[in-house]
Design a protein around this nucleic acid. Structure first.
Lengths: 229, 229
DNA sequence: GTCAAACTTTTTGTATACAAGATTTTGATT
DNA sequence: AATCAAAATCTTGTATACAAAAAGTTTGAC
């Protein structure tokens, strides 16, 4: 357990930002937040530094901390990178995955099947997270796994939007099974290709994403180019 | 110009860590460093948070900030990811590069040729940095470019070690030219493949890296597994 | 009514103070 | 001499104080 207030505050703010509690460009008021979390400004400002490092807020010197939601094109860019990272994980995993991790992956696919049959979206979401996390681990490259997990986390809210689309869960499951098969067969080419398509935003997924992005409160407000970094 | 002491201190510490001024596992003494930089502990600690976020130091609650050099296998993992990111940049760049950026890339290759002929290692190093940075930009994916640059920066000292190896500069240059040709031809397959091999640590490069790693003062001290994250 | 200069209020960045948790030292005991 | 516990010392984490910069407000000239 971590006893540092700064860490606690960082986690809380991170969650608040990711769940869209602040509008894009909104200033994080040190004094109000300090009161709200019952801490002084010192740990709060330490939290700001970390949030800025992960890109969730932008620190303008002598102006303050401003929350920064990705513009639509930035989100597309992030998904493009995510797809490639997962594809790479899959390629490595097909060669390196251990029997233990493979067994765990198999278990999540079975759990996903159950969730789809039960129409349990939350359950599916949870198992889906576990599936992807395991793919990262299976790559046998801890650094890669860490980076993939970091980006995955960043995209969490947008992925959640996506899963709500009708029929998306069933299609996702089919792909999970294909990936599992490829890993079991040691087929790195298929594992890579299916994972890339699984994550990439293309075809009808693109239009679905536009729709959910517009509805969400994680939109970036359109701004003159000059104001953006 | 940034007037914040915290930022200045962060940059200075970053450079000191990257250039091997601290041993792996060494504790960063807040009081001594505060005196050295002529600041109080507050901005110093803000700098620590950012350094921790980028993995340069590890923050152990109520114990302090400890510098963290990558173990050899971690460095190999980072290069594996770097190779893949650059390969991806190359693939995208072959399709998306603008005439302006392509012209700049051409210019760096010419400058690299001059540096090799003059035996100017520093000059080559500088142009090499510019070349890779331009490849990232050419991908047309700003997020990808940012992440690639971040990792590139992290690997900076190890790459520098590598370039000192005899004959390495000339081989690097040949590959730069091949990459440029592929981009001009819009040949994404070749651009991707050559860039991957260009960055990847394999074959004789692996042995060279072992040698320079051992000599450098960026080694991680071997530790019982339990003590590592 | 508009604009800008001067003043006021807020807010940031940094220093300092202090409590609580680690670490080291000391000294007693075996 | 080795071991352990209590005391002393050092460090971290947080609160608070304060100077300087930014934002907001008033006043006055045109």
């Amino acid at each position: 357990m971590n006893t540092r207030m700064a860490d606690h505050v960082r986690e809380a703010l991170e969650q608040m930002i990711i769940t869209g509690e602040f509008a894009d460009g909104e200033r994080l008021d040190e004094i109000r937040l300090a009161e709200r979390f019952n801490v002084s400004r010192t740990p709060l400002r330490e939290a700001f530094q970390v949030l800025a490092a992960s890109g969730l807020v932008e620190l303008l010197p002598r102006r303050g901390a401003f929350v920064r939601h990705p513009a639509f094109h930035e989100m597309i860019e992030m998904f493009e990178v995510m797809a490639e990272m997962e594809a790479f994980c899959g390629r490595l995993a097909a060669r390196r995955v251990t029997p233990e991790v493979l067994a765990e992956i198999r278990a999540t696919v079975i759990a996903c099947e159950a969730a789809v049959e039960a129409g349990d979206t939350d359950g599916y979401y949870r198992e889906n997270e576990r599936f992807h996390h395991l793919i990262y681990t299976a790559s046998g490259n801890e650094f890669l796994a860490g980076e993939a997990q970091r980006l995955h986390r960043r995209l969490q809210p947008f992925r959640r939007m996506q899963l709500r689309v009708r029929g998306r869960m069933a299609q996702s499951l089919t792909e999970h099974r294909q990936i599992l098969d490829a890993l079991e067969a040691g087929d790195s080419v298929t594992a890579e290709a299916v994972l890339r398509d699984h994550v990439a935003v293309q075809g009808s997924k693109f239009n679905d994403l536009i729709a959910s992005y517009k509805q969400s409160n994680l939109r970036a407000k359109p701004q003159p180019v000059a104001m953006r970094g």
